[in-house]
Design a protein around this nucleic acid. Sequence first.
DNA 1: GCCACTATTGAATATCTGTCAATAGGATGG
DNA 2: CCATCCTATTGACAGATATTCAATAGTGGC
Lengths: 199, 199
Amino acid sequence: MTTTTSSRTRLSPDERRTQLLDLGVRLLATTSLEELSIDVLAEEAGISRGLLYHYFGTKLGFFEAVVQHAADDLYRQTAPPAEGEPLERLMGSITGYVDYVVANQPGYRSLVRAASGGNDTLRRIYDDTFRALADRFFAVDTGTIDLPDTPAVRLVLHAWQAMTEALVLRWCDDPAGLTRDDLLRVIVDSLLPLLAALP
Amino acid sequence: MTTTTSSRTRLSPDERRTQLLDLGVRLLATTSLEELSIDVLAEEAGISRGLLYHYFGTKLGFFEAVVQHAADDLYRQTAPPAEGEPLERLMGSITGYVDYVVANQPGYRSLVRAASGGNDTLRRIYDDTFRALADRFFAVDTGTIDLPDTPAVRLVLHAWQAMTEALVLRWCDDPAGLTRDDLLRVIVDSLLPLLAALP
DNA sequence: GCCACTATTGAATATCTGTCAATAGGATGG
DNA sequence: CCATCCTATTGACAGATATTCAATAGTGGC
């Protein structure tokens, strides 16, 4: 939706940066990292190849910025409600996550795929994000469930997050007769039994 | 551990093929697909670039063969015991999976990373493998648990597999004070509550 | 309306994937 | 033990893609 296509369009660095990041998120949703060339990207953005290097240094640098952008977006948009009972806020956090994934499937899939298929930096961005989401759990849960912050609990919580992710993504592909509320119940109800199995 | 480094080493196609596949599994465990160049691969194997193309046609073709190789290995080595009580065989199947991942971390990590980061073909190999593992569950469970083969049950089973995978892989990195038996208990005990949450 | 600043370009370079005719290991038959 | 044939293997080449950098041109301030 660019107004004119004069030979060059000069934007402020911030505008250009976010334009490119948004485009990256959009393209990475349908194309995998190694399939996507800088040429295509530049053409799609209506700029020269060189400009991408000016802003992000390298192709990988660009992807890392894109993934970080998507991760930040996820974290921000799934903030639990600031007020209310702890249990309610916990539910709000989970609901927020589910709704976010459903609403942003392409972007979220980019994040997951880039992270697990990518290099250490990309994986670290993903891991840090999920660690931050887990941190919110401990912050919200003040006296609701007796949830000590131990390595074992962290381990199980991580596994539960992986389960939730797989569940929601596949549910998007094929709801298998389950409503959104059914899905939420499976997610919520599975957490306590999981923790209970710890010694 | 090659005996001599005469200018060329001529092997039978089968030997060379498996040598290259094994090398691929090993390298793909620590390096991502786009980071790994054919040059490095060829040098590591002590052969020319051309030979890789002779056997696998293309870089992607090679990776697909590597992933299929790892997937077949996983499926074969985690076969449940042919005899015994259904519940016992079910436990055997789960134990087999856990022990396999622990023993073959590099190969298993190759599989996971290539699958989630890769193209449709790679993801399909991974999915088919896990569907086959789920099939074994239904085959083994004849009358033990009341486990109907419905889309909803499949969905939850898939999520439980994802959880198990994340749990075992992270446990390998850091056991968090849990023994192998603790781990198995968490995995096994989580399945029924998950299924119970279905409507 | 001119100037300075810097966002932007495009041509040049480096590196990587993929092709193919030429080369050489080694088994076979005499 | 040697010549020959089959085919596993190579290395030089072509095409594409990532990366660099000196030159170019919008834009805001004076």
